[in-house]
Design a protein around this nucleic acid. Structure first.
Length: 114
DNA sequence: GGACTGACCAACC
DNA sequence: AGGTTGGCCAGTC
């Protein structure tokens, strides 16, 4: 009955929903943290679905770029949201994963018990 | 009911 | 050092 077992997507949504402001996560990191390195594709696809109001704008690719979620209105809007939250960017216009990368304490269930 | 598609990443050579 | 391929899950026609 654990939602976490309902599906890989649920795990992604759960993890993404725990990303604080001013922080971002990469598909690979989420995928690897969930178990598979090849699952990155699912993470990206999970965002594409965006069935719920998830901070998908805080999820970007490995290079720090954004796919321009068709849900936000475009990569520009996507980046605007991150900038508004205070996410550090590089001169190239990419997210500074070096500082914006969010690293959960291997336990993103901080709200699970709550 | 079956096959294709879809915001990617990392190992292999 | 770079180019190519494999792989995961869910939704849709």
């Amino acid at each position: 009955m654990e939602k976490t077992r309902s599906g890989f997507f649920q795990q992604v949504y759960r993890l993404v929903s725990t990303i604080p402001e001013g922080k971002v996560m990469t598909y690979g990191q989420i995928a690897r943290m969930l178990g598979g390195r090849y699952s990155a594709r699912l993470v990206g696809f999970a965002m594409s679905s965006c069935p719920v109001h998830l901070p998908a704008h805080r999820v970007i690719n490995r290079k720090g770029e954004m796919a321009g979620g068709l849900i936000f209105g475009g990569a520009e809007a996507q980046r605007a949201l991150l900038v508004a939250e205070g996410v550090p960017f590089l001169m190239d216009g990419r997210v500074d994963l070096a500082r914006a990368r969010h690293t959960p304490s291997q336990n993103a269930n901080s709200f699970c018990s709550g």
